[in-house]
Computed example of a mutant assay.
Amino acid sequence: MTSIPKNEQNQKQVQILNELSKRKVVEHNSLITSIAKMDKTPLKMFELAVSCIDTEEPPKDHTVYLSKAELFAFFKVDDSNKHTRFKQAVENMQKQAFFKIKEKKEHGFEFENIVPIPYVKWTDYHDEVTIRFSPEIMPYLINLKQNFTQHALSDLAELNSKYSIILYRWLSMNYNQYEHYSYKGGRREEQVEAYRNPSISIRELREMTDIVNEYKLFADLEKWILKKPLEEINDHTSFTVTYDKVKKGRSIDSIVFHITKKRRADDNSYKLEDKTYKEAKAEKELSNQTLAGKALESRYTRLLLENFLLSPYEMTDTSLMAGLQKNVYPKYDELKTLRGLEGVKKHLSYVREKQEPYSKGNVAKYLKKAVDQYLPTVKLQDLDQPERASVRGKGASHE
């Protein structure tokens, strides 16, 4: 059996990592604040599996498919013992890992212990890995119309501590809300700032990181739960985070974090020397930037935000915004001509209430599909009722 040259393996791994960098993880906030009773590897494996869920078309039988190549690239495993280590990680995840979820209900708190991934299947002769989520965890991963958090999978890849991952997810949850309400409004200024400078009591921090009976001295807690995790987060994610200690009497009662978002240039893991390719890529990027700029100024972008079909986080994705401007907004213009701006609003309200509110795979594709399915119905109505089209047309002219 011939072995694959090392440089070819490296190139393939770079390509896989480039694909993984485009994925997003979306979870209900109750899952973010739950107690993750697992080590870092099962937790990262769970996040990787969640990134495979296409919320436009939820997985059949709660099942997603990964490749071993994706797993090994994500965990940066390249030694000869990687298959044994993978097997051990899966077994540990299934034997030990569960989320302890606490949700506030009308008459008190509801508690759930959920094993997220009870079934994993793979072979030693095939690259595919089958992962099946438990039915109980799915409500926290799909059909999320509010109270959800979205973050980049690539931000998690370099985090090597369970506490770093837990803290990063919690910080993302708060910063997502800061970005949302900063743009959409609906909160007082001090409330919006509180999302960017979130506070957590030491008791809540201990519960969330599952160290209620560990690190009794605050100096130890600060070292392992705050300083080292934040060092990783600052080095490897899109956040820069500092914190202040708040005293109550002589003891530290809570922690206030201060989150800022880094402005990162597009970072390619490898370079191609082909000049034609570079010029074409530069032209495409310039075109995307122009289209994205127009999309940011469009009234349709605000309507999508108001209906939770687009997040402020997604607005930083130039390709996505360009796709909306190029492929979706012209369809909304067409619908506006037929039904007026109110018709567009009603359509987006319907998409939000009756269908999936976003698609991690391709938001622009999802929204285009929705309006493409709706427009023929509108046109057919106008053919059947010409007087309706006439009235709508007059109404549209005033927009």
Score class of each variant (00 low, 15 high):
K331Q: 13
T301V: 12
S287K: 11
V328R: 05
I252G: 06
D267G: 03
T240M: 07
S238H: 07
P357W: 07
R302H: 10
S287M: 09
Q289F: 01
Y350F: 13
L309P: 00
R339L: 14
Y350C: 06
A265V: 12
P357H: 09
K294Q: 11
V256A: 02
R299H: 09
E297T: 11
E285G: 01
R263V: 14
E314A: 08
L291H: 05
I233H: 05
E232Y: 09
V256S: 02
E279P: 00
K261F: 01
K245D: 03
G323A: 04
Y329A: 04
D266V: 07
Y270E: 13
K336D: 09
L305Y: 14
D266H: 07
K278F: 00
T301I: 05
E285L: 08
K360L: 12
R263I: 13
K278A: 00
S254M: 03
L309K: 03
A282E: 13
V363G: 01
R263Y: 10
E279K: 04
Y243T: 07
S311H: 10
R264A: 11
L324G: 03
K227S: 10
K261P: 00
E283T: 00
T290P: 00
S287H: 03
V256I: 15
L286R: 08
G323C: 04
S269M: 15
K247C: 03
E285H: 05
K365D: 11
K345E: 15
I233L: 07
L230R: 02
V241E: 11
M315I: 13
T301R: 05
Y270A: 15
H236I: 04
A265R: 09
P229I: 05
G343S: 07
V351E: 08
I255F: 02
E273R: 06
G340C: 12
N288Y: 13
L291I: 00
Q325V: 04
Y358M: 11
K284L: 09
Y358K: 06
E222S: 11
K248S: 12
F308E: 12
E334W: 01
R339P: 00
T316F: 07
L230C: 08
K336P: 00
G323H: 05
K262G: 06
K248C: 03
Y300W: 13
E356V: 02
K275C: 01
